[in-house]
Amino acid sequence: MPIKEFSENEIVFSFPEDLSKDKLDEQGKRIPVGMSLADLVINTDDYTYLIEIKDFSCSTASESRKKADLKLLQGDELISNKLTPKARDSYTFLHLMERVDRQIIYVVLLGLDGVEPLNNKTFLNIYKQKLIKNIRQEADEPWEKEHISDCIVCNLETWNDIFPHWPTQRRPMNGAH
């Protein structure tokens, strides 16, 4: 089956060419003001996957940049200010486009290579629980509608376990391997 690569900076995916996918926040594409959208939407027979990629291990990032990024993982800042609004806005966008016709799974891929204390299933598991909790309730009252069926928080390794037909790898921009 022909393969088409999709990359988000250093993280490169190999998708079957006929896979239905859409990059929502493509450069140059106009998006509704105030909306913050996930990186990619993939439709399969069963699900719509909203894919959001956050790379904390980019080889070209400075140490101070990496440290600042990692600070985002502490507490709830990344979840509250970025990941949850992206899930909600992406759902709203798809709903208004009448493209919600199956369960939506929100997949957050964290590039954590070399970030040893966090690059494990324990952290991913805990982070997922915090994320889904926040997605369900962003204000005093929880959302009445379960707009996101569930979410998956993964690193590159677990992504490849979960989605073996859509393998991903890091391709360092600085040429290092």
């Binding site: 699900y47 799974i105 299933k121 324990t122 598991n125 997922k128 069926s149 569930d150 979960i162």
Partner: peptide, 11 residues
């Protein structure tokens, strides 16, 4: 195992 089972349940 919790992580893997959770993924299995979701999918």
């Amino acid at each position: 195992e919790i992580y893997d089972t959770d993924i299995d349940r979701i999918l």
